[in-house]
Each structure stands twice: as C-alpha cells, then as structure tokens.
C-alpha cells in the first residue's frame, strides 16, 4: 500500500524547516547622505519642488510629481515643529509578539513641509487629537549617528 491513509498527529507530518539568510547593504544615496548628516547636526531638511509647490521630507533628488531634478537651491530646513495628522498605539512587536507596553507612533506634517513624517510619539498623559502641535526631540549630539533615530521622538508642544 503506497499511500498513508491518515496521519494522526501533526508532528508526524514531514516538512523541511529552513530560513532564508539575506545579507546586504542598502546605500542611502546622495540625498540620503546629506539628509542623515543633517539629522546628526540637529536639522531636518526637505527639498522643495517650485514647479509642484511640494516639499519632500526626507529630502530627495527628484520630484515624483513632475520628475524634475531637485538641485542645490531646493534644499530648505523644515520643522522641527509640526502638526499631528494621526497617531496609533501599537500593541505588537515586529515578530508578532504582544508588547507589554504599547508604543505610540505619530504621523506628522512638519512646518514648511508637505510630505508627512512617521516617528515615535511620546505624549505622556497628554490627550491626543488630530491637529495637535508637536515637535521633534533630538538625541544629544554625542548620541547622534546619522540615522532616523537621531530624532528620539516627537512630543506635544507645551
């Protein structure tokens, strides 16, 4: 009899268990380099497309609306204050495990920018609402490494 009619227990199901290892680097590019360096210096930069009247954050070398080049004169400083557009309390970690303490993530429109920025929001016990004024809080200069996390979090303006 070539066929097994029934496998009574799940652990008897034959399977191959494996994982895919993928190692690599993902270069940040010309605009990314300069934008992250800006964070390290405590500044948030955007690039403004004058034709489309739209400011990108993080700064980019091109406008996705008109596909024009955003050169030297397109760089402007934005924020660090902005307006809360949405927020969420997240209860799961990236691996799907439940977090014992939920974390709050905010969607912020920085002043002078059109693009929205997603980052950690620390509001303590302040009630949140769309339209709330918030600001980026940077890590101390010694702690900054040129990463998105050089901004520690956003918090409501007092």
């Amino acid at each position: 009899m070539p066929l097994k009619e029934r496998i009574p227990h799940l652990h008897e199901v034959r399977s191959w268990r494996g994982s895919i290892q993928l190692e690599g680097v993902y270069t940040v590019g010309v605009a990314g380099e300069r934008w992250l360096q800006g964070l390290q210096e405590g500044r948030i930069y955007g690039t403004r497309c004058l034709r489309c009247r739209y400011t990108y954050v993080p700064a980019r070398l091109f406008c996705e609306r008109c596909l024009g080049h955003l050169g030297e004169d397109a760089w402007i400083e934005v924020g660090p204050q902005g307006t809360l557009m949405a927020w969420t309390q997240v209860h799961v970690a990236p691996d799907g495990q439940r977090l014992s303490h939920p974390r709050c993530i905010g969607l912020v429109r920085l002043d002078r920018a059109d693009a929205l920025m997603v980052h950690e929001l620390q509001a303590e016990d302040r009630p949140l609402q769309v339209g709330l004024r918030v600001e980026a809080v940077f890590r101390s200069p010694a702690e900054r490494v040129g990463s998105l996390r050089d901004v520690a979090y956003f918090r409501p303006l007092p």
């Binding site: 993902y26 940040v28 990314g32 992250l36 993080p58 949405a86 927020w87 969420t88 309390q89 997240v90 799961v92 970690a93 990236p94 799907g96 974390r103 993530i105 969607l107 997603v118 980052h119 950690e120 769309v130 990463s147 998105l148 996390r149």
Partner: peptide, 19 residues
C-alpha cells in the same frame, strides 16, 4: 533607511490610516 530604524510592526500603517 527611513522606516525600519523605528523597529515597528507594519500594522502601525493600518492604525494611522484607520485613524
């Protein structure tokens, strides 16, 4: 570069969009 450093479960996108 711009999102993974937050180490957040992508479900946050649905939470923000829903709000």
């Amino acid at each position: 570069v711009y999102q993974r450093p937050l180490e957040a479960h992508p479900i946050f996108i649905a939470g923000l969009e829903f709000r």
